[in-house]
């Protein structure tokens, strides 16, 4: 299962994109309660959202975005647009999700 919940809601000529991603978003400054050692930084550093062949949003993030991060924005589009979100984290892991704007 993808770690991303993605919604794309079309209202006239605007599409509202909302996404929730499952990710620890570790800052690298938090100590593990049991071992007392620093938990290494692990966070989503880049998100790209495309609608069809257009890139509608690129987000660059640091580690102070919250755990299980949220992203929302609107773009000029329409119902039926193929909306795809891809994230990459600082460890090189990646995931993506796709939905049709409705």
């Amino acid at each position: 299962m993808s770690s991303i919940k993605l919604k794309a809601k079309a209202d006239g000529d605007t599409v509202e994109v909302k996404a929730l991603m499952t990710h620890p978003m570790e800052t690298g400054q938090r100590k593990d309660k049991k071992t007392g050692e620093l938990v290494p930084a692990h966070f989503i550093s880049e998100i790209v959202v495309t609608a069809g062949d257009k890139t509608v949003m690129t987000a660059n993030w640091g580690a102070s975005v919250s755990k299980n991060p949220y992203l929302a924005f609107n773009y000029a589009g329409k119902a039926g647009d193929k909306v795809k979100l891809t994230w990459k984290d600082n460890k090189g892991e990646t995931d993506s999700a796709e939905t049709d704007a409705a």
Partner: peptide, 21 residues
Amino acid sequence: LAATFILGEGAKPEASTRIKM
């Protein structure tokens, strides 16, 4: 710096996320 959003084709000038403070 928490986040930067580069607006692509047709994106409205608004973005939402959640941050740690």
